[in-house]
Every structure is written in C-alpha cells, then in structure tokens.
Simulated scan of single mutants.
Amino acid sequence: MSTVSSPVSGRVVGLDGVPDPVFAGAMVGQGTAVDPPRGAMDAVAPLDGIVVSLHPHAFVVVDAEGHGVLTHLGIDTVQLGGEGFEALVGKGDTVERGQPVVRWDPSAVEAAGKSPICPVIALDAGADALSDMVPAGEVRAGDTLFLWS
C-alpha cells in the first residue's frame, strides 16, 4: 500500500473541479486535485521514489511498488514554456515524500491566463485501487490525499 501525499498546500477540489475535460474525466487516471494558494511555493514529492519524468510544469514519481504518481502544476501550463518554473531535482533522482521538486508561483500561472489547479494522478491505477480519498477541504503539502493498494 502506498500513501500519496499532497504536493502542494491548498483546497482539495477533486477531479470534478479541474477545468480540463481530460483530467476531469479521469482519462489520464484516477486521483484528485488541489487548488493552491497564490504566491511562490515548492511542489513536493507525493511519495518516496524515483523521478521518472520531469518537465517544468509536471513530474512523475514512481515508488518501490511501481506506483507512479503524476503531479501536474496547473492546467495548460505546458504553453508557458517553462516560464516561472524551476526544477529542484533531476530526472532519475531519488526523492523522499515532502522533498521539494519544483519551485513555481500559482499567481503567475493565473496572471498568464491559466488555471493553477494541480491534478495528482495515480497512473495505471484501477478504479478500485484508491481508498481513503480526501473528498474536500484544506490540505497542507505532505498531508495524505489517498491510499493506493
């Protein structure tokens, strides 16, 4: 069983709260989403593992059980071309839950006309693989979002 933590502080809005049909429709995978406070912050690793994919606006960490978690920093933020994002680790690095991975500013994302909402997706997880999902409310970076069995 893997515990998946929130990569950012903010308000849990669930996938239904993501202004993107691909994420909202769980086409990328099951999970949830967090609307972060505005202002510069670090997005942290949602679980212990290896960074297998790293882009300015998104990263994937895979744990020892093979569970891969995608953290997407905002919606359509790929269109920003990395502007306003700073990677703090490299692809292939081993990270611990809560370790800063990317520094970014949700207010700058919003000022650029994009949503700063952060989907947190359990890649290749079956519909019944996730449990104890936080349905709503405030979370801090590092708080548990869901369990993956």
Rank of each mutant, 00 (worst) to 15 (best):
G82A: 07
F85T: 05
A129Q: 10
G10L: 09
T3Q: 14
D20T: 14
V8Q: 09
V44R: 11
T71S: 12
G39I: 09
M27Q: 13
V134T: 06
L15T: 00
D124R: 00
V12H: 01
D35W: 11
A127T: 04
V102K: 02
V51N: 09
A58D: 08
D105A: 12
T3G: 09
V95I: 14
D128R: 04
Q30E: 15
V95R: 05
S149I: 11
P7F: 02
G92D: 08
G84I: 05
A122F: 01
D20L: 12
V28E: 09
D76T: 03
D124Y: 01
H72L: 04
A43Y: 03
V22H: 13
A112S: 15
F85Q: 02
H55I: 00
V4N: 03
G17D: 07
G92Y: 10
V4Y: 02
Q99W: 05
P106H: 10
Q79W: 05
E83P: 00
G113N: 15
V102S: 06
T77Y: 01
V109L: 01
Q79A: 15
W104A: 03
V8K: 05
A24N: 10
H67N: 13
V102D: 09
I75G: 01
A141E: 10
K114P: 06
V13S: 03
V12F: 09
A87C: 13
L80R: 09
S149E: 13
A43D: 01
V51D: 11
S9G: 15
V134D: 07
I50A: 11
R97H: 09
V8T: 14
P19V: 10
G74S: 07
G74A: 05
S6E: 11
A58P: 07
T94M: 08
G68Q: 09
F23T: 04
A127Y: 05
P135H: 02
V139Q: 08
R38D: 15
G10A: 06
D48S: 04
G82N: 08
G49N: 11
V60R: 14
G66R: 07
T144R: 15
V139A: 14
L147F: 01
R103Q: 02
S2P: 15
A24G: 06
G90D: 14
V101T: 01
G14L: 05
E65G: 15
L80V: 03
A64P: 01
G10C: 08
D48K: 08
D20N: 11
R140M: 12
G39V: 10
R11V: 13
G66M: 01
G74N: 04
A45W: 12
